[in-house]
Design a protein around this nucleic acid. Structure first.
Length: 421
RNA sequence: GGAGGGAUGGCCGAGUGGACUAAGGCGGUUGUCUUGAAAACAACUGUGGGGGAAACCUCACCGGGGGUUCGAAUCCCUCUCCCUCCGCCA
């Protein structure tokens, strides 16, 4: 959510700043509703003040005649008030609905562009693996080794679901444990979250109202399946005022992620790259406004370290304005190289949302004892998406005979074994 | 799923239609006293919105929403959550 005061006072700036996202937004309508709201408030509150003092006087009055005449007057005032209140409510809900549809203002450092081809690669780390054979894609490796079962996944749940067996299942669990332990050492506190949350959590995090098509939910119980741990984490401190010295707060959490993505079958969804259910370890931070850019760099470095420790070749890209997420001001993507699929796979998105989510969530901090509370900044970053990391681990560590070398850092969770197959 | 009991400020807790401008206590902040601290005493001590250059004025908020009334923490309806008991259950 943007600051209505900013929109009011610097309308042109907001209009221009949002335009770089490539969509038009009706700021003027918001300005008008805001004006209308304040005018109505002035009127209705004046009447309420009058009624309050008069009602107090009525309680003290002895003279029945004066009394009943005032009561009659106030009855009329009351009718006018409830009429105006209704108008206020109507105006506010219209205004709020429009405000919720405005995305965040991209940071000055976010490059302008229209789609992912305009994203800017700022770093490539690691050398290309020197295979003296043609590396296989993971769907071949996985099927041959009996660790990924696509057919039975489809039997159970339909297309884009799979079953992991034996070393495949263990390797995924190893990755999750490795990531959580690493992030804990990096200063994040681990938490286990509900995988179903109420609708309001999605609005707060900025996934609703815009992305309702992508979320699985049960209407009867107001239970919405998380699309990312970012959603519950954004709401962990909803409606709270945090003490100054508790910031920054760092969290890490593993959750499955459920997404009703409507991507047509084909190269984009081959293998385990894009399922309706996938695991992810998330990093999240709540910070002072003036610290969020420093924390953004820390979180990027922390996500990179995950790739480095796993021995994966990766690149870092800065997303352009047209590819930027709804709530983000600035985002780095990390992509790892998968030699079997022959492509870069996005395994992490690290974003600074500024106060966009904290306004929606009403999460504030108090800069000093007795001072006015302020909205804090929130950041999120994957650390990392598990299936794609698994793909990269399998494809990069394959040997000519189809077996896999298990990366050293994962062996503690693989009973010390050094290979699969 | 059934029956009953609850929800009041940072915390405890009083409050059944008009002085609630929410008692009292605890906690917190500041001050007096003190070499310093403790104790004692005193004052202050919620959130958000609107107006205003500011001082300040004003509105709303006693779990959420709606209603009755000139006037609601208080009465009515409804929802949520918590507790106790019964049933069911991995």
């Amino acid at each position: 959510m943007l600051d209505i005061e900013l929109i009011r006072q610097d309308t042109e700036y907001v209009q221009d700043a949002l335009a770089v996202r490539g969509t038009e937004f009706n700021i003027e309508k918001i300005i008008n509703l805001d004006k209308q709201r304040r005018d109505l408030l002035k009127e209705t509150e004046g009447l309420k003040a009058k009624r309050n003092t008069t009602s107090k006087n009525i309680g003290r009055m002895e003279n029945d005649e004066d009394r009943s005449s005032l009561v009659a007057d106030m009855r009329k005032v009351g009718e006018k008030i409830s009429q105006l209140d209704q108008q206020v409510r109507g105006t506010e809900s219209k205004l709020n609905a429009l405000m919720l549809e405005l995305p965040n203002i991209p940071d000055a450092d976010t490059p302008q562009g229209t789609n992912d081809s305009d994203n800017v690669t700022i770093k490539v780390f690691g050398k290309e693996n020197d295979f003296n054979f043609t590396p296989k894609p993971h769907w071949e490796l996985g099927s041959d080794l009996g660790i990924i079962d696509f057919e039975r996944g489809v039997k159970l749940s339909g297309s884009r679901f799979y079953v992991l067996n034996n070393a495949g299942a263990r390797l995924q669990r190893a990755l999750i444990s490795f990531m959580l332990d690493l992030h804990t050492r990096q200063g994040y506190s681990e938490c286990y979250l509900p995988f179903m949350v109420k609708e309001v959590n999605f609005t707060t995090a900025g996934q609703l109202p815009k992305f309702s098509d992508n979320i699985y939910h049960d209407v009867e119980d107001d239970a919405w399946f998380v699309t990312t741990a970012e959603v519950p984490l954004t709401n962990l401190h909803r409606d709270e005022i945090l003490e100054n010295d508790t910031l920054p707060l760092y969290y890490t959490a593993y959750t499955p992620c459920f997404r009703r993505e409507k991507v047509t079958a084909g190269k984009e969804v081959r293998g385990i790259k894009r399922g309706h259910q996938f695991d992810k370890v998330e990093m999240y931070a709540l910070t002072h406004p003036e610290e969020s850019y420093k924390v953004l760099e820390k979180m990027l470095a922390d996500a990179e370290e995950t790739c480095i420790k796993l021995g994966l070749r990766y690149r870092v890209r800065r997303l352009c304005s047209g590819d930027l997420g709804f709530g983000s001001r600035i985002t780095y993507d990390i992509e790892v190289w998968a030699p079997g699929c022959n492509e870069w796979l996005e395994v992490s998105s690290v974003s600074n949302c500024g106060d966009f989510q904290s306004r929606r969530a009403n999460t504030r901090f108090r800069p000093k004892k007795g001072a006015k509370s302020k909205y804090l900044h929130t950041l999120n970053g994957s650390g990392l998406g598990v299936p794609r990391t698994l793909i990269a681990v399998l494809e990069n560590n394959q040997r000519q005979d189809g077996t896999i070398t298990i990366p050293e850092v994962l062996r503690p969770w693989m009973s010390g074994e050094d290979s699969i197959g």
